[in-house]
Design a protein around this nucleic acid. Structure first.
Lengths: 176, 176
DNA sequence: CACTTAAAGCAAAAGTTTTTGCGTTAGGAG
DNA sequence: CTCCTAACGCAAAAACTTTTGCTTTAAGTG
């Protein structure tokens, strides 16, 4: 008994795309805890049953979409200077989370993290590891010094997250 | 027209206490996004209507209770040594969030933060301000260097939050 | 300790979400 | 191009949540 062929193209892909857009809109508009499956279905022009069968409940759906959206693998800066690379990378992350939709999705991801459910910052950690290989800096230091303050601000103090933050945090990690 | 007298004692207090206990249990057991008002009412031995009339919806109720629980004002350490005081303070915070119920409530608070709804870390900031008065350290530095890494770990990497973390983070803020 | 009324309880109605069974559409393999 | 069936749609039923009007209980005041 070989696994039955999944059907990921055509119609299913279109349905998934419109659901993603609807979830992102609604999470930004109402906050994750007020996004329901019937609401998403209507906005996406899709039958609620399709959503129930794919994800089961709203938390699972939102988390899945938050992970997809927040965790794209991008090419890393690579100028030869650790400081410049980290600064550019951190600036990208700040710019990403300054968009309200991404901040809202991160908060949603935080809500279901910790129970193994969410890992919407996985690629940030992998990127940090890439950036600091062959340097004296550890991944843990990058997380504590650069990522954690950014994420804390995104979630609890969004108005204090400006473009200068990235450079200041990297300076603290790599004093002049 | 003077404000009508609130009734906060006796029965109302008992109802509030049992609701708080029920919410904390259920948030720990199921995660905040699966806690409903009828569920809390049953567990607390209280009529759902009382909850609807007091808070309106589950997110508001959970946020209110999370703020109350996560934000107790405690006496601050005061030995005369900034390093010792900060270390003791940070260790207390770590111990607090190592309890699964408090970690779960912080995640719940994170979900509704940012839209002005939640401020479940307000007292941590006030305490930081108290601790660093008359020193060269700023509140912002304490938040970035000590609080943010602890909160990040509570939410996304709970297994990496151990008792040694507090001292290590304070060392980074105040090198020997 | 009597009185006023805030807050809790109750029950029925309204509204919403979730499940289920079955028919339809269309992706992917041969 | 054809076939098989995964994935979607639809509609009715079940389950659950929320609102509403009214009654009861008891907190706080004089």
């Amino acid at each position: 008994m070989t696994a039955p062929a999944r059907r990921t193209g055509g119609r299913s892909a279109a349905v998934l795309t419109s659901i993603r857009a609807a979830v992102e809109d609604l999470v930004r508009e109402r906050g994750a805890e007020r996004v329901t499956i019937p609401l998403v279905a209507e906005r996406a022009g899709v039958n609620p049953t399709s959503i129930y069968r794919r994800w089961g409940d709203a938390a699972t759906m939102i988390n899945d979409i938050a992970t997809y959206r927040l965790d794209p693998s991008r090419p890393l800066p690579s100028t030869g200077s650790l400081r410049d690379d980290l600064t550019a990378w951190a600036a990208e992350i700040v710019a990403h989370y300054r968009k309200p939709v991404n901040a809202a999705l991160l908060r949603a991801g935080a809500a279901v993290a910790g129970e193994g459910l969410s890992d919407c910052l996985r690629n940030r950690r992998l990127e940090a590891a890439q950036l600091v290989t062959d340097s004296a800096v550890t991944v843990e230091e990058v997380i504590d010094t650069v990522i954690a303050p950014i994420v804390y601000r995104v979630i609890f103090l969004p108005e204090t997250l400006d473009e200068a933050t990235a450079a200041r945090l990297v300076d603290r990690l790599l004093p002049a």
